[in-house]
Nucleic acid binder design. Structure first.
Lengths: 187, 187
DNA sequence: GCATGAGTGTGATCCTGATCACACTTTTTT
DNA sequence: AAAAAAGTGTGATCAGGATCACACTCATGC
């Protein structure tokens, strides 16, 4: 279970003792394909670090259409953060797309770790920074790019996801119908 | 110039001595309407905390069309963070829309403050958290909302900006033409 | 205070991408 | 191995919103 340690130490080195303490805040959970990690309406009590497998997090609109906010593969963190940070019911679903293992923690865990270990606060800040930048880039892409451009950009940023994930869902991530996406390369 | 202190202390209390040190990392700059704080191609050396005035940050596409990533009013932080964190040339423009005062700092400033003061790392983490949540919400809105819904949501979230900012730019923020936006309420 | 430019409303037309429909393939499940 | 379900390609049609054009109002800067 040192995968957690390796992951953290990409950003912040921990002593053995520190790590022993840190790891008590995380719990392992195995999830099978098509299981929900969270559904709309559930209290967003946890956030997840994906150790293996793939997830998608999406908003289900009034017409029952999915809009994918995020995919998450190995070493990605994932939560409906709006709900999580306010400890409110989630508005997003998190669904497993390939058998997975995740570590989960609570908001209290995150905040306690941040308060007790400057290193962990640093770790979370850096992670958040990266996430913020990725989202800013995505907003630019959604506002200004054609479906074509968005698709190509996705392929460049996430080549591994491109292979593993059905085009259908990539379309939902890009905000384009699957038919239109299909015509981008077959047409 | 205690506006900085007040702003920080909404999240982290500082001793006088700490604050004296912290403030040396910030510099004040006055900016007039229609001045650029940053243009595409400039090294993204600074990030900005707006003390007064209003800015817009936008991407200028190949056809010369603006796509607004963010507005920033009092107490908002703003930068082309993708460029800033990598110390690369900016791809976004930052333009003053109403006479303003800003404090600016450098990436080195941010990182030094974070390393030297756990409190400041906390401050930045909390700020980033809020920004991350706001962006996640915006992505949901862009993916799933009609222009109508996006417009209403904007009005609810930012009533003050709604009043002060020409509709034209709100349209650019929402990813809708100004004509379409106009017809949403006049039609 | 006048002139220029910026912002806005509104009609007419166009076009990109959504939707609908269906056939075919591949993967999962039992 | 068969059956069900999920994913994909592609044609036909539709529609939401973009674009173009122009008139009018309101700031703003000289």
């Amino acid at each position: 279970m040192d995968r957690l340690r390796n992951h953290i130490e990409e950003i912040a080195e921990l002593t053995d003792q520190e790590y022993e303490n840190v790891k008590t805040f995380f719990t392992l959970r195995r999830v099978k394909r098509n299981q929900y990690l969270q559904q709309e309406g559930d209290l967003a009590k946890y956030e997840f670090l994906v150790l293996s497998g793939i997830f998608r997090m999406f908003y289900l609109d009034e017409e029952g259409k999915e809009h994918i906010i995020q995919f998450a593969g190995q070493n990605w963190w994932m939560a409906d953060y709006q709900a999580y940070f306010n400890q409110k019911p989630a508005t997003l679903h998190i669904l497993c797309m390939a058998d997975a293992e995740v570590l989960y923690t609570t908001l209290e865990g995150r905040e306690t770790l941040s308060a007790n270990f400057h290193k962990m606060e640093h770790f979370f800040r850096v992670k958040l920074t990266n996430g913020y930048v990725a989202q800013q880039r995505r907003i630019v892409s959604l506002l200004s790019g054609s479906p074509q451009q968005r698709y190509e950009e996705f392929g460049q940023l996430y080549p591994h996801l491109m292979q593993k994930i059905p085009k259908k869902y990539i379309a939902e991530y890009l905000g384009v119908s699957r038919e239109t996406l299909s015509r981008l390369y077959s047409g």
